[in-house]
Amino acid sequence: MTVAAKLEEVRKIYRTGGVEVHAVRGVSLEIESGAFLSIAGPSGSGKTTLLNLLGALDTPSAGTVRIGDRTTQGLSARTLADFRNTHLGFVFQTFNLIPVLTVRENVEFPLQLQGVAERGERRRRVDELLGEVGLHGLAERRPGELSGGQQQRVAIARALVKNPTLVLADEPTANIDSETALEIMRLMQQMNERRGTTFVFSTHDPLVMRHATRLVRLLDGQVASDERQGGLRHDT
């Protein structure tokens, strides 16, 4: 089994107005490649902090976070940016697409950042992804012209276009209705199966939890339970 990410005794302490907040307290977790993992827990349990640590958006106060074969501790902001650029994809609760760019340009953006200079190559990869997420006909639309579900599909395509080691999704179904949420989960499941991409979600949503093949529950910054499950499957 290849390990996509590994957390060892990770702690994260914030100081807010002179008060120390222990957001994550000694979490150890090994995420295998191709996992479809959901991190669940009540508000304030440390889900988002853990996702930020896995996403190299933040570094731990103690312990180590290893993504692939590299730890994030002690890396400069610039190196972390390059690391995220190469290894990580993000799907946000509020989609966070660039409103002034078209769907195609939004998906193409990470490739430009990655230094894929050849326009034809970028276009080929973008078109392939847009086809997979079912948005081929909407490539020239702006995000504002799309529904919430369509925007989230664009965000998924954008996260996957650079073939990352890990895709991190923060409450990916929070801003869409239940029917669309189901579609989005099916889509991510397909991508996970078809491409073997590792997905890690933070969520409150039982629907997301049901789809995950592994469910990690956090409570007060600690792992309360770590269960492997079948994961709800759909015929595709």
Binding site: D82, F90, F109
Partner: peptide, 16 residues
């Protein structure tokens, strides 16, 4: 601000 955060999350450096 949030959009800039997203760009940086995708790997855009501060210089960018």
């Amino acid at each position: 601000t949030r959009e800039v955060g997203m760009l940086m999350a995708m790997g855009l450096r501060g210089g960018g």
